[in-house]
Nucleic acid binder design. Structure first.
Lengths: 249, 249
DNA sequence: TCCAATTCGCGTACGCCGTACGTGAATGGA
DNA sequence: TCCATTCACGTACGGCGTACGCGAATTGGA
């Protein structure tokens, strides 16, 4: 029997009911199948298109059927995040080359963030701790194992890296997603929507350093991947400069 | 006459119609008044409570009246962000002590982020460039003026700082907001909702470094403000280590 | 084999949301 | 005074998450 006041807890502690042995009808779907469908819709049309009705429709069933597998829509977001994070392929342990390990992780994360343009937004809007996020986080922490760093320092550095990677991906996606959301094509959005305002701001001359960052940037015309790598290297340089065991000259 | 296919453009380029001289009824409200009301509601009950109907109700009018002042709800978000950013008080120009200037900015930003728990979430979810965000951003850039840094490097450092400040605020708010959203009180949320899952993860021993970061942290028991300052100082250290003109020992 | 127990699929319904549209009231210039 | 213009806002539409309940399916035990 299902109690009325269902106690809320993390989705990761509510295993789904498949592989039962008792009586009752067998489930026709699965969390993974539902999550995969939601991810496909969100990839193609944005996360706001992945509604319960739409996901169910794609599966050929009714919206309320999904609630046999997922308590709330928010939990489905957590499952989507974890499914996307599961695509990040990493070696079992650190190689000893912390820069190389973290560069690999950053590139994998960027790839996942671009494949699933909703991933970073969901990740920063929800305090989720799915198994794959834990796996990836553990790898990041482990890359610093052996450098003689304090666990608090390690956590701080991993945070710095995560922050950079996430905001770099957001920058790379940002305008594209906003254009999709408003229904304009990206070129037109940049030219007609944000363009005139930025131009007005620049021409007003009120913010000279902002102007220089827009007009005099030498990295602005790099390919996105190179720009990402460049910024990443600067963060890694900053971290290296603070690791005592490396003893910079 | 209002055309059917209203061309979309930034809210900052569509001045509101008050201070007219032609015929027609005088407006009874204003963008600022509406925005201020929205902010009050969002502060008290979360941004999702600041619906058009609710804001209008608070003002004693109908929901559709607001659309004479704000084209879309999303634009109201931009106005809310800018109003919150306007509370960040800064000197007119940099003092010459870049560390001091950026520390001041970080503390002001934290204060605004805690006063308006929705601010950071909106800020990272929308590529907005309101006048007050520009003002604050310009101040951050200007703090590095005179250090002999490249504009790209300055932009990168300001980005690092922003990333830290934002994610530190998110961490500080995160659980509190999630608890409010789900309607549980914060203590109960931490104990009954996330607590058991984290405990299970920790006890499984599958992620030893994650465990150390949870159990062996020495900064975990600091007061929030001190923790913020500590992390901020580490970022500033990292930046200082990369500024050639400072020539670290 | 038959039945009681249990679970699933899902239709219906409720109360929200953003906002398109149209109408009537207010306003100031000619 | 008359009229073009602008405002306030009631009504309505389509869509959302999801509470609830019922018939169908499936099983273990009698």
């Amino acid at each position: 029997m299902r109690m009325a006041g269902e106690e809320p807890t993390s989705i990761w502690m509510q295993p789904e009911a498949h592989e039962r042995s008792g009586p009752g009808r067998r489930p026709g779907y699965s969390r993974e199948q539902i999550t995969r469908t939601a991810v496909q819709i969100a990839d193609a049309e944005g996360v706001e298109a992945a509604t319960m009705r739409r996901i169910a429709g794609e599966l050929g069933t009714g919206a309320m059927s999904l609630y046999r597998y997922v308590p709330r829509r928010d939990d489905l977001f957590d499952l989507m995040i974890d499914l996307a994070m599961s695509e990040i392929e990493l070696p079992d342990g650190p190689s000893g080359d912390w820069r190389g390990d973290l560069t690999l992780l950053a590139r994998q994360t960027r790839a996942a963030g671009l494949r699933h343009p909703w991933l970073i937004a969901l990740l920063t809007s929800r305090p989720t701790l799915g198994p794959n996020l834990l796996r990836v986080h553990e790898f990041a922490l482990s890359a610093f194992n052996g450098t003689g760093l304090d666990i608090d320092d390690i956590t701080g550095f991993v945070g710095m890296l995560n922050d950079y990677v996430h905001s770099a991906i957001r920058r790379e996606i940002g305008w594209l997603e906003e254009a999709r959301r408003t229904g304009l094509d990206p070129e037109r959005w940049k030219r007609d929507y944000m363009g005139p305002y930025v131009r007005q701001v620049v021409e007003s001359g009120a913010f000279p350093l902002f102007n220089r960052s827009v007009l005099d940037s030498r990295t602005a015309h790099l390919a996105p991947e190179e720009r990402f790598r460049h910024g990443l290297d600067r963060i890694l340089d900053a971290i290296a400069a603070l690791i005592p065991s490396l003893c910079p000259r």
